[in-house]
Simulated assay, not measured.
Amino acid sequence: MGGFDPAAETEAFRCGIWRLNVSARHQGRGYGRFAVAAVAAEARRRGQDRLTVLWVPGEDGPEGFYTGLGFRPTGQVLGDQVVGEMFLS
Rank of each mutant, 00 (worst) to 15 (best):
R29K: 05
Y66T: 00
A24Q: 13
V56A: 11
A35S: 05
L88C: 12
V56G: 00
W18D: 09
Q27N: 09
G2K: 05
Y31K: 00
G32A: 07
A24I: 07
G2P: 04
Q81C: 13
E59K: 12
A7H: 10
P62K: 11
E9V: 11
R44M: 06
V56L: 13
V22K: 08
A41N: 13
F65K: 11
G68A: 08
G47N: 10
R33Y: 08
V83Y: 07
A37Q: 14
R50P: 06
V22G: 00
P57S: 06
L54G: 03
Y66F: 08
V82I: 09
V83L: 10
L78M: 01
H26P: 00
S23D: 13
A41M: 12
P62V: 10
C15R: 09
E42G: 10
G61D: 15
A8P: 08
F71D: 00
D80Y: 03
G2M: 10
G32Y: 11
G70V: 01
H26A: 08
I17N: 04
A35I: 06
R46V: 01
R25E: 14
C15D: 10
Y31V: 08
C15A: 04
P73Q: 12
L20Q: 05
P6E: 14
R50T: 14
W18C: 01
F87Y: 14
G70Q: 04
I17T: 11
P62E: 14
F65Y: 11
G61Y: 07
Q27D: 07
H26I: 00
A24G: 12
T74S: 02
P73L: 09
G79E: 11
M86R: 15
P73Y: 06
A38K: 14
M86K: 15
G64C: 07
T67M: 09
